[in-house]
Design a protein around this nucleic acid. Structure first.
Lengths: 352, 352
DNA sequence: TTGTATGCGTTATCAA
DNA sequence: TTGATAACGCATACAA
């Protein structure tokens, strides 16, 4: 009665073959005669051996089959966005063929002791919405020889990016709004850093925005409305958008006639707040989104927004990881958004 | 110019100490004099050593710091539900203090080559919504000495469960509906197995339902309405609920006067479909949900539903994992839902 | 407080 | 097709 779990050596011994042969029976990397395979399998069954220990195999192979996915803050704030879910799903699909799965890593370690890019046994890392904070860690991770891919952000020299034309796309929406005659326009942004509060963005805030995607979209907005105000939401959700919208439409004073939101969820929130405030969309206020997701129950509205290829981005990231792991040096990939005009934007009301 | 990455032995050598001393400097498990610590750190910096290799540490320690979370099907279908997101977040929080992170494992390997419970270097596994399919794997996983916890399902003897009073709770909703006078009632269920299609459930389907939570809630419904019809949705989402609702309310013939849904998202979908069909809620049709999530934009409706403690369930699962890993044998935990009456249910219309 | 010795369980390489 | 050998890089028990 040995309490110790059987190892492949035990199995080999019991089967009367060498450990390497037994190993090969399980890995299938080399042809084995049917007879010995049967012997080994029988011995394994006999001893209750259930296959190689993944931890030992990891060390020996130098591969754990684990890809760290780093995202800002809590899981809920990431997966709450349909775009992220789609991207993650595509990523999981794309790395599955190389035998890899996704380990959820939260930026800035929400809780002490949490595994990090440096301590987790990962083969590669995918950074989502790279922030300045994250960029600091990047050097160490890469120095370790761990390949990195960045989605929606800039990982610096030598880090393949899966990028979107955020600035150009957002500029398109802003131009659309401008062409409709709007001048009192407000941008509603996603949080400028993980955990930051909701509120008006100062120029100082703007210049220190640490999340690339937020900065880029804001830049596109600024290309058209250099002096307009910007209000940051607490995350990218309908609730957060509604909170911002309530702030924007509070009181009887003048309110913006157009709101350019950095995500569809935010836009929907703003739209709800406008409805609450008794404003008609788009007659009293025009609203644009970003992402092109399907928001159920939004009818009769159809958001004017920028449709981005979320699935393709995830796949591309996974394929870049696979290439990196295979020793290749994949190029960055730029995806483009498609501007889609819905019925949430219209000409500015004429003042009599 | 040695291309090989430096190891802790190299560092120790360069610092003029033993490998074990160098190891201790990094792990901090034993006191080290300030002088030697500095020497080691200096040598590490010199050589570009960035800390112990997590893979090697995993083997030696017998711990990888990775907990596999198995859920049915695609990520999107899991994380699309706010209840799941909350549960996962709480789970991540609860295992973080023991240095563990979550590896996403998809049941039934969506793509070939994908890591599985048996091949991934996990310390423990959390099964979500345990299905019969999953139960088969369980034996092997446990035989390996990997602790398992099941949320919303039955893992069998010796597997701690984090459970909800699904049957009793659903019965409460059914009784409420019955007490309002409804007799033409339909249950709308979540999918009876991963990937199954939407449609009326035959008695045969019902008895072979492989997802515990679906079976349990359906049983609660059947306690009150043994002969009512049940319609399965394709997943737990607003869209899926709306699709079912459209089927239920199609045509001019009689339609159910009450719909008991297995999730809030489904209920909202059914509600939308009812609106589309020109039915008033609750005058023409009563609708109940399950979960107690906040569905934005639902006003003026407030769902009659069962509020479940999603966060607590996640935490409890994490704590059970930690206990198991510490060698304890935690008990199963049963959580209860709270029945909350909203304004989506009302007395059956009197026929003249 | 530091060093010595050992093994965690596997698999790649090469020769037979 | 099989077997011998040699790491993979580290952390622990124990002795000094």
């Amino acid at each position: 009665m040995n309490a110790r779990r059987p190892t492949i050596s035990d199995v080999a011994h019991a089967a009367g073959v060498s450990p390497s042969t037994a190993s090969v029976v399980f890995s299938g990397k080399t042809p084995v005669s049917e007879a010995t395979r049967a012997k080994v399998l029988a011995a394994a069954a006999e001893l209750g051996y259930l296959g190689p220990d993944p931890r030992a195999a990891s060390l020996r192979r130098g591969r754990s089959g684990i890809i760290g996915v780093v995202s800002g803050g809590r899981l809920g704030s990431v997966f709450g966005d349909p775009v992220m879910r789609t991207t993650m799903d595509a990523l999981a699909d794309a790395v599955a063929p190389i035998g890899a799965g996704l380990l959820l890593l939260r930026e800035g370690s929400v809780v002490a002791g949490e595994p990090t890019l440096m301590t987790a046994p990962i083969d590669a890392a995918v950074l989502i919405g790279c922030s300045a904070l994250l960029r600091d860690h990047l050097a160490s991770v890469r120095a370790r020889g761990i390949p990195v891919v960045v989605i929606e952000g800039d990982g610096g020299e030598g880090v393949p990016r899966i990028a979107l034309d955020n600035r150009e796309a957002q500029r398109l929406a802003a131009e659309h709004v401008r062409d409709l005659g709007h001048t009192n326009v407000v941008a509603v942004t996603m949080p400028v850093r993980w955990g930051s509060e909701s509120g008006w963005l100062s120029r100082d805030d703007e210049s220190t925005t640490s999340v690339d995607v937020v900065a880029d979209r804001l830049a596109g907005f600024r290309d058209v409305f250099p002096d307009a105000a910007a209000y940051a939401a607490v995350d990218s959700s309908i609730d957060a958008g509604a909170a911002v919208g309530r702030a924007l439409f509070a009181g009887d004073g003048p309110h913006p006639t157009a709101v350019v939101s950095q995500s569809d969820l935010l836009a929907v929130g703003v739209l709800r707040a406008a409805e609450e405030a008794g404003l008609r969309v788009p007659e009293d206020v025009s609203i644009t989104g970003f992402d092109g997701i399907v928001v159920d129950g939004l009818a009769p509205y159809e958001l004017t927004t920028l449709v981005q290829p979320a699935w393709q981005k995830g796949r591309a990231a996974g394929e870049a990881v696979a290439a990196l792991l295979a020793g290749d040096t994949p190029d960055s990939q730029w995806f483009t958004s498609t501007f889609r005009v819905g019925n949430t934007t219209g000409p500015v009301a004429v003042k009599y």
